[in-house]
Design a protein around this nucleic acid. Structure first.
Length: 852
RNA sequence: GGGCUCGUGGUCUAGUCGGUUAUGACGUCGCCUUGACAUGGCGGAGAUCCGGAGUUCGAAUCUCCGCGGGCCCA
């Protein structure tokens, strides 16, 4: 059956997608094969699988398919990280409600409903991209089967003292009305006014006059002689009139403002540090919604912005504020809604951060690329306080705890009671005080509490299966090192005292064609579906493979995708040509067959090494280069005359060589191009290529001599081609007569490829060999003669050519006599003909004589 | 302000534990419709490897300084 001339990606990709069985990719919990568990990132179900995700999944699929072919028991699970604010916001938008207008249960139900719709859409994208996902190991974090584990992890860590409750300053988003972790704070440069105030006997400068009501101390630098005498005295706070102490602290910058700073609870993180260090009192002037409290007197009920405006106007009028200047400032923002965060002291749940544990565990993991580890190390060192895990939201894993209504004591659930929602159920035992009246904890868990046990979940933790931790691979983007990597390492260590994975593979960010991060506002946004429709999943996957080095940012370029689909068409043409000619029956190879086979084995060796090192770009480029350049442009051209010619040994050898090459290449391509490779393999064998083993290297067939002989034949052929091109002949034009003086023993392929008769001659043609110039070998000279190498090289170039041809040169360099043997230089020679009507082509040590 | 990272023909990119014709793709120019492929083949042009200094016999590669981009943070 002849293949159609064009490769039709639309039809064929659809065909295979609908043919493949999910069970091909199931992980076998009872297998004897070595395990390869991948801790796939669970995407947030927005409904759209964006191109950055797609890049990451391509990497994962390359690895999964490769490892399966290498004989591993591979798990490529698919998770969905459902909980979180964006879905709550979407639900409010979609139904035109706010979360307080419906019951908690009803609001949760609407969130679940939206999430399920989105997951269904995203599953389709994953299938269409040809990912070999193990759907028997799908997990959905909002389902009881998963969030029950999140809750059990909470209980276990609470019982081991890793989780505790405390009144502590936390980052607070007044719009979302919830505490957030450091990882959720973004920073932005703004400009603000620095206000100079008459503050009792002193003058201070502050950017936050609205916090005057929350002022708990005034600080000066201990070395600042202007203010030494005021330390430990009391000052009356302007406007509000309460007294605060003057303290000294070396972290006060005497050159900033007036050198006097007011400490409020809390203006910024520095206030928190001073507050802790000097055991200062707490004055809450801002409430959870960002409004001023009673403490702010007449400003009560105003937002911080309104209050700032009002108090500045008042103080200007009363002469308290005597100067203002512009000041650039960085403010913390809520990463979800970009609202300026406040620092409030609230009772929250925290996870202890043991920096040494995290750093030591990170060191047990192989980081690819290795420099990414530094990011985790730097982040680990900068945490100001423990991980705040409680959130004042609804759509998240409930914190399994209650408060006794009579004694106020906290009761945390027992593991066997889980999963549960404490706002819906009561604990199964009474409080120590005897009361059985409880109020359920309404706070919920940070979503990272869900996703940070993904590695444990997929490895069989708290299941009927054996625990297979550590997993082998964590693939993720470098943007979430400080969150997902950090928290996963923390949790795995805390819960099981083990590293979560053997290796972490970081991918870069996808940039738009203009080199900037893709965003709708820049109009450089591309969705995977658009690419698939135009060029197919395999072309998209090629862009992912060759667009850039693993770990670095990668620009999405349409031309790369187009180049991908061109390669598919080229490969298709190769197969289309080859199919009628291939044969599985071995025969004795000719020199050019041996060359091809040697190169092919070298390719298998190289690609195996590079895949093991996660170098997808280099792997794919090597395969493509072999198929296009070596196989198509050279081998097939050279073997064509045998393939079309008379039956016989030579023909058989070419047929067999071609078979081996096509079969091997399809297998090497299988991890990258699942659809295309399956289609071409289906014309050779009846089984799926995705169940075949990865090609084995046959070292004995990698033969440098065979390669140089083949290379010589190839070079001679292209020299003849070039000759024809230069003389304006078509490439298939026969030449009068060709004589070849060379070490090769078989010129029939050259004859076929050049469509000419060839006389193979031994020895040297009847030409004069004239030495032309001496070329120094710097590699040898440099090592041997070090700093004299340069002057020796200069002398060498001008040395006697006759001596050079004899193999040894003696030179006078800097007054010293130096003898160089032939390893130090090469003599370039020119052959001059003696009056025959011919053209001469030189290839290495061989000479081609073309009789005109 | 700090950490990490990148800066290679017009464009994108490989090479980066030092070795003298710097890889490939796209684009471009010329030739070729040859029995797999014109979505092709053959050939050419095009790069002071961001700038400067240093180390070295020798630097795209190592060191330092500077300039510019990206990411993460303060």
């Amino acid at each position: 059956m002849e293949l159609p001339k064009e490769y039709d990606h639309n039809t064929l990709e659809e065909k295979w997608m609908n043919t493949w069985q999910d069970s091909m990719y199931y992980f076998d919990w009872d297998s004897q094969k070595p395990q390869f568990i991948i801790d796939t990132p669970p995407p947030y179900p927005t409904g759209n699988f964006h191109i950055g995700n797609a890049l990451n999944w391509c990497y994962i699929d390359f690895v999964a398919r490769y490892k399966r072919m290498r004989g591993y028991n591979v798990m490529f699970p698919e998770g969905w990280d459902c909980h979180g604010l964006p879905t709550e916001v979407k639900v409010e938008e979609k139904h035109g409600i706010t979360k307080s207008q419906v019951s908690r249960e009803e609001f949760r139900r609407l969130c679940v409903e939206l999430t399920e719709t989105n997951i269904t859409r995203m599953r389709k994208s994953l299938r269409r991209l040809g990912f070999s996902i193990d759907w028997s190991n799908e997990y959905i974090t909002m389902e009881p089967a998963y969030f029950g584990k999140t809750q059990r992890s909470f209980v276990q860590m609470h019982n081991s003292g890793m989780i505790y409750q405390q009144n502590h300053p936390v980052n607070w988003c007044p719009r979302c009305e919830t505490a957030i972790a450091f990882a959720e704070v973004e920073y932005d440069s703004r400009s603000t006014a620095l206000n100079y105030l008459n503050f009792d006997k002193l003058k201070i400068a502050t950017t936050r006059p609205e916090l005057l009501a929350a002022c708990v101390a005034v600080a000066v630098n201990p070395d600042d002689e202007r203010y030494n005498s005021y330390v430990n005295t009391e000052l009356k706070v302007p406007v509000f009139g309460h007294n605060v102490k003057v303290i000294s602290d070396k972290n006060v910058d005497p050159t900033f403002g007036t050198g006097v700073v007011m400490i409020c609870t809390f203006g910024d993180k520095q206030d928190v540090r001073w507050w802790v260090e000097h055991s200062l009192p707490l004055r809450k002037a801002i409430d959870k919604t960002g409004k001023m409290t009673e403490l702010a007197g007449k400003y009560k009920g105003m937002s911080t912005t309104e209050c700032k405006k009002a108090i500045i106007a008042d103080m200007k009028e009363s002469g308290i504020l005597y100067k203002q200047e512009e000041l650039p400032q960085n403010v913390g923002l809520c990463w979800r809604c970009k609202t300026v965060i406040e620092i409030l002291s609230e009772r929250q749940w925290f996870v202890k951060i043991k920096q040494d544990d995290i750093l030591n565990t990170a060191n047990e993991v192989t980081w690819v690329p290795d420099y990414m580890k530094v990011r985790l190390e730097n982040w680990t060192g900068t945490m100001e306080w423990d991980w705040c895990i409680s959130r004042q939201r609804i759509f998240a894993t409930p914190i399994p705890a209650w408060y006794c209504t009579s004694c106020g004591k906290t009761k945390v659930a027992k593991e066997e009671w889980l999963p549960l929602d404490p706002t819906q159920t009561q604990p199964l035992e009474a409080c120590e005080c005897g009361s059985s009246e409880f109020r359920g904890e309404a706070d919920v868990l940070d979503t990272w509490m869900d996703s940070s046990i993904s590695a444990l979940h997929v490895s069989g933790w708290l299941s009927d299966h054996p625990l297979l931790l550590p997993a082998q691979l964590r693939p993720q983007g470098y943007d979430i090192i400080r969150t997902w990597s950090f928290y996963t390492i923390l949790r795995s260590k805390a819960l099981l005292d083990k590293r979560p994975w053997d290796t972490i593979l970081l991918n870069g960010m996808v940039l738009g064609e203009d080199g900037h991060k893709m965003s709708k506002s820049r109009d450089n946004f591309v969705i995977p579906e658009e690419v698939i429709t135009k060029h197919g999943a395999d072309a998209f996957r090629q862009w992912a493979a060759i667009g850039g080095t693993t770990g670095s940012d990668i620009i999405f370029l349409w031309k790369d995708v187009v180049a991908g689909s061109r390669f598919l068409q080229k490969m298709w043409s190769i197969v289309r040509f080859s199919l009628p000619h291939i044969s599985e029956k071995p025969a004795s190879f000719t020199p050019i067959d041996l060359w091809l086979i040697s190169k092919l084995n070298r390719l298998v060796k190289e690609t195996t090494e590079k895949m093991d090192a996660y170098q997808f770009d280099e792997t794919f480029k090597a395969i493509r280069g072999f198929a296009w350049d070596i196989l198509a442009d050279n081998y097939i051209e050279l073997a064509k005359s045998r393939l079309y010619g008379e039956d016989g040994k030579g023909k058989q050898a070419a047929q067999y060589t071609l078979f081996v090459a096509i079969e091997t290449i399809s297998k090497l391509l299988a991890p990258f191009l699942p659809y295309f490779s399956e289609e071409i393999y289906s014309h050779i064998k009846q089984e799926s290529i995705h169940l075949q083993p990865w090609p084995q290297v046959n070292e004995s067939l990698i033969d440098a001599d065979a390669e140089s002989t083949g290379e010589l034949i190839k070079e001679m052929t292209s020299a003849i081609r070039r000759y024809k091109a230069e003389n304006g002949m078509p490439l298939n034009a026969p030449l009068n007569e060709i004589e070849i003086y060379s070490t090769i023993t078989d010129a029939s392929d050259i004859a076929g490829a050049s469509n000419s008769t060839i006389k193979l001659k031994s020895g040297v043609p009847d030409f004069e060999m004239v030495a032309k110039q001496i070329k120094p070998n710097m590699k040898v000279l440099g090592k041997t003669y070090r700093n004299r190498a340069k002057s020796i090289a200069e002398a060498l170039v001008n040395a006697d050519l006759n001596l050079a041809c004899a193999g040894s040169i003696t030179l006078q360099v800097e007054g010293e006599e130096i003898t160089l043997d032939s390893s130090c230089f090469t003599v370039e020679k020119e052959r001059l003909l003696k009056g025959k009507a011919v053209d001469i082509l030189e290839v290495g040590n061989s000479t081609i004589v073309i009789v005109r």
